[in-house]
Design a protein around this nucleic acid. Structure first.
Lengths: 134, 134
DNA sequence: TTAATTGCAAAACTTTTGCAACGCT
DNA sequence: AGCGTTGCAAAAGTTTTGCAATTAA
């Protein structure tokens, strides 16, 4: 039913998408809220979350989750995967390397209709791994 | 520093692990709390969470996250990956199929020290995909 | 006009934490 | 005895939601 709604092109939605598209940092909803608030000072969390959920449903942003941290959002929808640094908690993109046919393999093997997959590597980024690691 | 602590073998910890080991369902902390409470009626959420975090640090359980849902826990540590049904929200295990060397590949390519990875497929399980899909 | 969307504030959820009491070792 | 752990309850953090006002189409 939400798919049948007619979407309006609000300033809030445009700017949320625009700000997300400008960074490679995969911000959380809260970080994105702070980014957008610079351009729309009275925007609310509700609007951020409602729009992120809506854009996610339309497959215009990716919602990533790394453990118990709040979700991170990615404006790049093209298939790729992610590195999550356990220390600085930054997220890095990696170009996809032919994992696409895994979906079909799994679908056949498990009788599961795969819509998409996520591959995440957890570890220490170049900058953090040289420092002492907790 | 938490690694240097001497761990005690409490009844609570044993039973949490035992209950998690008995199921294939990858329960949330809340679900596990309800399972354990049948055997220890006055156990608290704090104990559940503290133990899950501790067991996760010791690599005796896996903490999985699927979007904004609460984390799910897996008593099977051996490498494998997961299917998450977008409808019933059940989690299914899949045997790992030679993805191990991906870690090294990524490490070399991205100057990232990979500790572990997670591969999750999202879609509809055998049972849900035959029903109407939201 | 009118229905989707917003800002606000409260609520719902999930997870962590301070503290005194408890119980492994 | 010593100190890691527990139960409790409060707090912190994240996300959703009801509602009246606003605004895009």
């Amino acid at each position: 039913m939400k798919d049948r709604m007619i979407r309006r092109n609000t300033k809030q939605r445009q700017i949320i998408l625009d700000e997300l598209g400008k960074v490679k940092t995969h911000p959380s909803a809260d970080t994105l809220f702070k980014m957008v608030r610079k351009r729309i000072p009275d925007i609310s969390y509700g609007t951020i979350y409602r729009n992120l959920n809506l854009l996610k449903d339309e497959n215009r942003v990716l919602e990533l989750s790394f453990g118990k941290h709040s979700c991170r959002y990615d404006g790049t929808v093209k298939e790729h995967f992610h590195l999550f640094c356990l220390k600085c908690e930054n997220v890095f993109d990696v170009e996809e390397a032919g994992l696409g046919r895994l979906d079909k393999k799994i679908a056949d093997k498990m009788n599961f209709r795969v819509e998409y997959h996520r591959l995440e590597f957890f570890g220490y980024c170049d900058s953090c791994k040289t420092k002492a690691v907790a």
